[in-house]
Design a protein around this nucleic acid. Structure first.
Length: 238
DNA sequence: CATGAGCGT
């Protein structure tokens, strides 16, 4: 039942266990002595480095409307490390907005969950998890893991079974600078909309792929490549 | 044919 890792120097006795269905939100967190809470709404400059050891919540998107808290608990609750989860709903229609939040008992757990589940196939079989770190205020959400600007291309004519991973690997086999790929998912059906995006770190590889990958087979259909509108407003991060 | 991305009491 209770795991204790002797290898890790964890000194926080986390022995409180509670059913997640009773309390929808558990905001109580043991405050670490070594690190004061810096994310209160005091006069903090927005130039805060995003170390954020206290972030234990994942954002999950591309949820279908029937995917409620019970479904998410089926997905994540078996680990016994979920402290709270919630699906955001429209207040008028009480319909799911297609995203939610999952909070775990530690940052290490959260990180492990992100790497384990992100991109994996969801139990319904039709789509893969879309997970990311949750942000607690608008402003940090645009920062992605990257070490430079990304150059994206539009990829259409995708077969419906093409996943992020397959699309990514199809390009990564020929281009080293592929940073990621995303297949756009229809929230109503949870299935692919038939197009997606591939991001490159190297602009020259992006240019090459625009012509070289034109008509190349991905799964069962030849791809149609086009330019992608850049949604990143020229982040000049040095 | 088509252009993603959505952050809460």
């Amino acid at each position: 039942m209770m795991q204790s890792g002797p290898g890790m120097g964890q000194q926080l006795p986390q022995q409180y266990q509670q059913p997640p269905s009773q309390q929808p939100y558990v905001m109580m967190q043991p405050q670490l002595q070594a690190q004061p809470a810096v994310w209160s709404q005091s006069a903090q400059p927005p130039q805060q480095p995003a170390n954020a050891d206290k972030v234990r919540t994942l954002w999950i998107g591309d949820l279908q409307y029937w995917m409620d808290e019970n479904y998410l608990y089926t997905c994540f609750g078996q680990t016994g490390e979920v402290t709270s989860l919630k699906v955001i709903r429209n207040k008028q229609t009480s319909q799911s907005e297609g995203y939610g939040f999952i909070e775990f008992n530690s940052r290490a757990t959260t990180e492990r969950m992100l790497q384990t589940y992100n991109g994996a196939i969801m139990p319904n079989g039709g789509q893969s998890y879309r997970l990311n770190w949750a942000t607690f205020s608008a402003g940090e959400r645009s920062s992605r893991q990257d070490d430079g600007p990304d150059h994206a291309i539009f990829v259409g004519d995708l077969a419906i079974d093409v996943t992020d991973y397959l699309l990514q690997e199809t390009f990564r086999a020929r281009y080293n600078s592929v940073k990621g790929a995303k297949v756009v998912i229809d929230r109503l059906t949870g299935r692919s909309k038939g197009y997606g995006f591939v991001r490159f770190a190297d602009e020259s590889e992006q240019m090459r792929a625009m012509t070289e990958m034109q008509g190349v087979l991905c799964s069962t259909r030849p791809m149609r490549i086009g330019p992608a509108t850049n949604k990143n407003p020229a982040a000049t991060t040095q």
